[in-house]
Design a protein around this nucleic acid. Structure first.
Length: 577
RNA sequence: GCCCUCGUAGCUCAGUGGAUAGAGCAUCCCCCUCCUAAGGGGAGGGUCGCCCGUUCGAUUCGGGCCGAGGGCACCA
């Protein structure tokens, strides 16, 4: 028997029946999977939805719908139950046929064309390249990558992008920090500002520059701090003055220091993410927006539409017209565009590049920023609904029942690389997406590291490994499993596993539609549990050849589904543990 | 003050406009002569924060309240 996807098929049947019973009604056919087995495989609530309009008792409407239901080779029986549910029982053979279907589809099982190939861009991580990625970035990376995988799996043309803030003040601060450390190495001691970058990686870069170029960038300490405001009373002014002095003293060499620090940190982040299984189609440079005049153009567009005014020497965007609580500066009185202005230009550019939908994955601390950006897009004549911002809350690490506190400022934070080294990429990827993205995540290091059944990653991977070991012990030709007779499968654990396997495509669709890769993680836990249940209840390598092949085919299909699901989350599927 | 998120078992959290609300951990009991026990089976444990509304039906949607966390720069 060829496999027919029951839900789509039933929705079609019910649609025909409802059209006959209640012509012209426009209800959506809803089919749910009842929690209780006695309620069948699918339940339809159409009768209850129609009862009022038809002025009839729902059970009576249900009877009419059932009578009008076209014949189907899938349906074993229907029952009218409770307040008016129509419960549908699927023939075992129709369920069993899934095994051959999954094996034939292979890695494509679960794939769909929900997205119709529409271009969707997911921008994520986008951390300032001013230091190592930390565990907060890790969550955004894991979430964004998994989401992009899900979207691609259900038929979207997913494009992964990292926005590189290579033009702003933060990069200048990094360049300055590196240079000051370099001067230290060359005997020119300048008091290192508390609001400069403190991390050891800055010293490492200074050391490297010193080794590569000796004293070439050495300048007198007194000149570096000349005319700078006091570091205590005006720390930011102090820093800005030092940056200005650095640019003046170094001239064209400043660009070298700046570029060196940028490339170092960007390269480090790229390596880190690649090792984490997170890759991007494009690293978009903020500087190119400036260089191509796109920011001028964006601000001019706003100006033309009458949304810009000047005050105190700065240019303001009247974002209050678009629901923001106060107006925002786009160009400061010193003539420098704000980050906000660059962001407007960047998002307009995204649309111009033809992405029908744009998803931004931001840290939750940016949430106040959403209305501003959307408002600006609207003001510039773009459709803000094409932008979806998904917020990712911070992750808090726990170890030995203690919260690990972090402070970016002092350079004392746990880096993503440290976390990956400590708990492994698989556990990292999985734990990061185990919670809904917009919720605080308690990352339990002890649990992530533990090689026990408490650890859901191992629980799932173990299910996969177990199947591999059985198939290996069998030693037969996998192609033979295609032709196994699935009607041999009748044990409750076998049927439960079949039902679970059948849900995979819908889980993938929901995960993509709701931007919720955690649904895949939970599904995999369920699937693994069903596999372990079957494993404990039934022997696979039995004497009865037909039964053996059927069971092996079932677990081979399960292995494929586990693999596909783990791949969506970027977690490996080991054959041996 | 304004905005966002959350409140479900002792703990950490899923879930859903539907029928008797789930998992893991923790507690207690049981299961390897057998393809990996990194596993399985069972028991106990709940006013889905409170109130009102919408609905044939609300834990789910809307409003209010209470409680928790986070965010509100001429920073990036």
């Amino acid at each position: 028997m060829n496999y027919i996807e029951p839900k789509t098929h039933l929705a079609d049947l019910f649609g025909q029946a409802v059209a006959q019973v209640a012509p012209g009604s426009a209800i959506a056919i809803e089919l749910e999977r009842p929690k209780q087995a006695s309620h069948g495989d699918y339940a339809c609530n159409a009768a209850m939805q129609l009862a009022r309009a038809l002025k009839k008792n729902p059970r009576e409407v249900a009877a009419q719908i059932v009578a009008a239901l076209p014949a189907s080779q899938l349906v074993a029986k229907t029952e009218i139950a409770g307040p008016g549910f129509i419960n549908v029982f699927i023939k075992p053979a129709a369920k069993q046929a899934l095994v051959g279907h999954v094996l034939a589809a292979g890695a494509d099982y679960g794939r769909s064309d929900l997205g119709h190939g529409r271009k969707v861009q997911i921008e994520f991580v986008s951390a300032n390249p001013t230091g190592p990625l930390h565990v907060g970035h890790g969550r955004g990376a894991a979430f964004g990558a998994s989401l992009a995988n899900c979207l691609a799996f259900v038929g979207y043309n997913a494009y992964r992008e990292y926005y590189v803030n290579d033009a702003g003040r933060q990069m200048d601060i990094l360049a300055l920090s590196t240079w000051l450390r370099y001067l230290e190495l060359n005997g020119e001691i300048v008091a290192f500002p508390g609001n400069a970058y403190q991390g050891d990686y800055v010293k490492a870069m200074a050391q490297a520059v010193a080794e590569l170029h000796g004293g070439r960038y050495k300048r007198a300490a007194a000149e570096v701090v000349a005319n700078a405001p006091d570091a205590v009373s005006d720390p930011e002014g102090h820093l800005d003055a030092l940056i200005a002095n650095a640019k003046a003293l170094l001239g064209p060499d400043y660009a070298y220091i700046h570029g060196y620090a940028l490339e170092e940190q960007l390269g480090d982040g790229r390596n880190d993410l690649t090792e984490f299984g997170v890759v991007f189609d494009h690293w978009f440079s903020e500087r190119t927006l400036h260089d191509a005049g796109l920011i001028d153009r964006a601000v001019t567009a706003l100006q033309k539409n009458g949304h810009i005014y000047e005050q105190n020497g700065a240019l303001w965007f009247r974002s209050t017209d678009f629901g923001d609580e106060k107006d925002r500066v786009v160009k400061r009185d010193n003539g420098i565009y704000t980050y906000f202005a660059a962001d407007i230009a960047y998002h307009l550019n995204k649309f111009e590049r033809g992405f029908e939908q744009v998803i931004d994955v931001w840290g939750a601390d940016h949430h106040g920023y959403i209305s501003r950006v959307k408002g600006a897009l609207k003001a510039a004549g773009a459709d803000p609904d094409r932008l979806t911002v998904t917020l990712v809350q911070f992750a808090v690490l726990w170890e030995g029942g203690q919260k690990k506190s972090m402070s970016t400022r002092s350079g004392q934070y746990v880096t993503l690389r440290e976390l990956r080294t400590e708990v492994g990429n698989d556990a990292c990827r999985f734990f990061y997406v185990l919670r809904k993205s917009d919720q605080h995540l308690d990352f339990d290091l002890d649990l992530a590291k533990s090689q026990s059944n408490d650890n859901p990653v191992y629980y799932i991977q173990y299910a996969h490994a177990r199947i591999s070991r059985v198939l290996e012990a069998w030693g037969g030709d996998m192609a033979d499993l295609q032709d196994a007779d699935p009607t041999q499968l009748s044990q409750p654990q076998e049927l439960a596993l079949l039902d679970c396997l059948a849900e995979f495509p819908e889980i993938c669709a929901s995960a993509a539609r709701e931007f919720s890769p955690h649904l895949v993680a939970y599904y995999l836990k369920d699937l693994a549990a069903d596999l372990h249940g079957l494993y404990a209840a039934c022997q696979f390598l039995v004497a009865d050849e037909a039964l053996k092949l059927a069971r092996l085919a079932l677990i081979a299909a399960t292995r494929q589904t586990l693999r596909s699901g783990l791949a969506l989350l970027g977690v490996s599927a080991p054959d041996k543990m």
